[in-house]
């Protein structure tokens, strides 16, 4: 500071308040400009128009899917599980011994469209359609339909996530005492014929968006 001249005091006719006002206004308007300019950059990282448009519904042919089998298809970059459940498997979904150990047996949390809010969490009882992403931290749970085995004598068959050991039954309902908080989500889907399921499109009269679920 020693080598800088001290500016002369303000001229008397310019009041200090006006000078303050202008400087504050200049700072504020410049700051607002910089903040607005940041928005296009941030928004550019959101999903682009073509990415959103590419999530069109996907038809899956079920005619070759045998009872007890699962197929996995990719829809909107996510694995979708489609299972043809057997009669004993369907029966296990209603056993009180199993239901007592589930976190949300009645599917109370919005993890599915209304048309899948039932004991089998699907439109047709035998066909299960799920988004195959663990609600804990996003790994893909393994299809483990056989009861018992290494998962313990009381394992009724379902999904086991290899990452952190979360367990779901064969309707994608999460067990108690595992890290995952919610049931596996059910995507919008409908049957265009008896053997073809269209993933990503609701049945007529429903409006469900996968983004509306509690947690993907």
């Amino acid at each position: 500071m020693a080598d800088t001249a001290q500016p002369k005091p303000m001229d008397a006719h310019v009041s200090a308040t006006r000078r303050d006002f202008l400087q504050i206004a200049a700072t504020v308007v410049t700051g607002i400009g910089a903040a607005i300019a940041a928005w296009p950059l941030i928004d550019s990282m959101n999903a682009a128009r073509d990415t959103l448009a590419a999530g069109a519904p996907l038809d899956v042919d079920l005619s070759h899917l045998q009872p007890g089998q699962q197929i996995v298809v990719l829809w909107r970059s996510r694995p979708i599980f489609v299972v043809n459940r057997t009669a004993p498997e369907l029966k296990s979904l209603q056993e009180a011994a199993v239901l007592n150990r589930l976190r949300d047996p009645e599917s109370a949390v919005d993890q599915q469209p209304d048309y899948a809010k039932n004991w089998h969490r699907s439109i047709k009882p035998e066909y299960l359609v799920l988004v195959g992403i663990c609600t804990h931290l996003g790994c893909i749970p393994e299809f483990t339909p056989q009861p018992g085995g290494t998962l313990g004598p009381d394992w009724p068959g379902g999904y086991f996530c290899p990452c952190h050991g979360s367990r779901y039954d064969l309707a994608g309902r999460v067990f108690q005492g595992v890290p995952a908080p919610y049931n596996l989500p059910v995507p919008p889907y409908n049957f265009v014929s008896n053997t073809v399921v269209r993933i990503g499109e609701n049945p007529a009269g429903s409006s469900f968006d996968l983004n509306d679920v509690e947690q993907l």
Partner: peptide, 25 residues
């Protein structure tokens, strides 16, 4: 650079994708 693809077969189209589809691209 987050949207651009440095590949001779895709670079031109990726720039046009920035122009057309990316938000504020």
């Amino acid at each position: 650079a987050m949207q651009y693809t440095p590949n001779a077969t895709m670079a031109f189209d990726s720039v046009e994708r920035i122009m057309r589809d990316v938000n504020f691209g």
